[in-house]
């Protein structure tokens, strides 16, 4: 798991890997911020649950894939369980990077995740 491990960062326990496996996400409050942790095929990602658009609970929306266009110009569906859509206005974000799919100048803040002995921590 990528971890910049800034010397000032504090680890905050969120959930165990076993528990997270039984659901698709966990949203925790850490230092006044709501942060969602997603499990994408055994990799863990932490993203702010506050939409950069109008402040909606972005990480509480549908977790799904998204529509793309193939080289043959046919509609395809991929990135299953990697895309979260803010329930207020449907803005789609990549949970791995926080980036907005439509306009790349928008992104949800992301946080470093550390896994130790089956427990998931978020650093900030």
């Amino acid at each position: 798991m990528a971890s910049a491990n800034s010397p000032d960062a504090t680890r905050h326990h969120v959930v165990s890997t076993d528990e997270l496996e039984s659901t698709d996400r966990v949203i925790a409050e850490i230092q006044g911020r709501e942060i969602a942790v997603f499990d994408v095929d055994g990799e863990y990602y932490a993203v702010a649950n506050y939409c950069v658009h109008q402040g909606g609970p972005a990480c509480e929306g549908l977790l799904s894939g998204t529509v793309s266009m193939s080289d043959e110009m046919e509609l395809t569906y991929d990135r299953e369980d990697e895309i979260v859509a803010c329930p207020w206005h449907g803005w789609e974000f990549d949970v791995k990077t926080g980036k907005h799919l439509a306009r790349s100048n928008y992104a949800l803040p992301t946080y470093d995740v550390v896994v130790e002995d089956g427990e998931i921590y978020v650093e900030l």
């Binding site: 929306g61 549908l62 799904s64 859509a85 329930p87 207020w88 206005h89 449907g90 789609e92």
Partner: peptide, 9 residues
């Protein structure tokens, strides 16, 4: 729409 597809709730 995004409502139809569940992306807006």
């Amino acid at each position: 729409t995004p409502v139809t597809t569940g992306k807006v709730q």
